[in-house]
């Protein structure tokens, strides 16, 4: 199994930390992983993205130009990464702020109202875990016990009291993710 993922959105949405938690969860499941952030001028422009690869075998190239799954959290990222999903792959997005919805018919498109659900939960910082939950529902490649271990390892000790809230947000994402039907 090799899963190649791009997660892209605004800085501050928790894109990089979501990728880190996913990668750490893979480590806890004895997978080979790589986590490669965009650190260049695109970051200065307010957008952030990270490539995460989880595999049963050694990861070859950490930089990719097409992906099994794209998780897209703003319009700029939609413009850039909808076309980078492999045919038959998954595009997961949050409709908040999306003015031009995806149009491809050769991929599987799902939406998760992450921004809205995070507001419902009373904590906007749970946003990225809701998205992670939605992803794990679509691609259950990591056992929940390993996701929990991933959270423990990637969050500093002082934030461990927030792990139950994060797990609740993951459950919420799993529950709320739905198939997106093209207009």
């Amino acid at each position: 199994m090799t899963e190649e993922i791009i997660i892209a959105g605004f800085g501050g949405q928790g894109v990089l930390s979501m990728g880190k938690i996913l990668a750490y969860s893979g480590v806890m499941q004895n997978q080979e992983v790589s986590w490669m952030p965009a650190y260049g001028p695109e970051m200065r422009g307010g957008t952030a993205n990270v490539t995460v690869i989880l595999s049963d075998e050694k990861v070859s190239s950490p930089i990719l130009h097409e992906y099994d799954t794209a998780i897209v959290l703003n319009q700029q990222s939609m413009n850039k990464f909808e076309k980078a999903v492999k045919p038959g792959g998954i595009l997961l997005f949050d409709p908040n702020g999306i003015t031009t919805p995806p149009t491809r018919t050769d991929i599987n498109i799902y939406k998760i109202e992450g921004t809205a659900e995070a507001a419902n939960m009373g904590n906007p910082k749970t946003f990225n875990m809701i998205i992670l939950g939605a992803y794990l529902k679509l691609k259950p490649i990591i056992k929940m016990e390993n996701v929990e271990k991933g959270l423990q390892n990637s969050l500093p000790e002082r934030h461990h009291k927030l792990i139950p809230l994060n797990l609740k947000a993951i459950d919420m994402g799993m529950e709320k993710v739905e198939k997106f039907s093209l207009q």
């Binding site: 790589s34 986590w35 650190y39």
Partner: peptide, 10 residues
């Protein structure tokens, strides 16, 4: 280079 410096691996 920036790839290996910035990426995370096991």
């Amino acid at each position: 280079d920036g790839v290996i410096g910035q990426m995370m691996e096991k």
